[in-house]
Design a protein around this nucleic acid. Structure first.
Length: 233
DNA sequence: GCATTAAACATGG
DNA sequence: CCATGTTTAATGC
């Protein structure tokens, strides 16, 4: 693998499990599906609900949880505007989806989709890309968890966020993102106390500073070097 | 090397 | 006020 290819690969990944590959072209077929509104904190998909429709998020934001065997809910991903929820085929998974903003979704049954596909032969490929984006993320996530310690996963997350979404300032990089420490913990699989400790260490070393709606990275190279160690604690 | 626990503190609707 | 998020230290696996 050449360096340029590797760099490209690093830049095309999904860092935060959020919306993956939005399919905005599906919006024009909303009249063929079933639209429904959900208030903030209401359940969009209740556990055990039948899987008989492809869902697109028209507005708002939904948190998709997997219910584990012991009954706890663990984050799978966030679904924002034009994100698809693949609920067309039955699975073993027990999913609970909660609107974290007032949200609007549209459900397409298999028959709805047949009609859409007849009209738009590109549509199946867009939907495939959405599924691929999700599969790629979670495959990579398995490798990530198996390859790096929790503290390093936190550093790697922020580094990749910066490379992918960071805006170059005069003397720093700015990542505009609303991401709580609890969210970082859920995404990386590290404990939230560990996230707090790591972020404070990075702040004391003047490498970065994170607040409610942005992360400022002052020393990206140092962050990269630290993320290549075996641990940071 | 980090999770867990608990308890204190901080922010904001 | 309460809910939610953050910090810190002690202890455990």
């Amino acid at each position: 693998m050449t360096m340029s290819y590797r760099r490209k690969m690093d830049n095309c990944g999904v860092v935060i499990p959020d919306s993956f590959y939005p399919v905005d072209s599906l919006r024009q077929y909303v009249h063929l599906g079933t639209v429904k509104n959900y208030a903030k904190n209401s359940s969009v998909i209740i556990p055990g609900e039948p899987t008989n429709a492809l869902i697109i998020v028209l507005e708002g934001r939904i948190r998709i949880n997997l219910i584990s065997d012991d009954g706890r809910e663990v984050l799978l991903y966030f679904a924002g505007k034009n994100c698809l929820l693949g609920r067309l085929f039955p699975t073993e998974d027990n999913i609970h989806a909660v609107a974290i903003e007032n949200s609007t979704i549209c459900r397409f049954t298999k028959d709805n989709l047949k009609e859409i596909f007849r009209d738009n032969e590109e549509m199946p490929f867009d939907i495939l890309k959405n599924y691929l984006a999700k599969a790629s993320y979670f495959m990579r996530q398995v490798a990530e968890i198996n390859s790096y310690n929790p503290t390093i996963r936190i550093l790697r997350l922020i580094y990749r966020l910066c490379v992918l979404h960071g805006k170059q300032l005069e003397n720093a990089h700015e990542i505009v993102i609303k991401l709580s420490q609890a969210n970082i913990a859920e995404i990386t699989g590290a404990h939230y106390v560990t996230v707090s400790r790591v972020l404070n260490c990075l702040k004391k070393e003047k490498i970065l500073n994170k607040n409610k709606d942005k992360i400022i990275v002052y020393d990206l190279e140092k962050l990269k070097l630290l993320s290549e160690q075996s641990t940071y604690y």
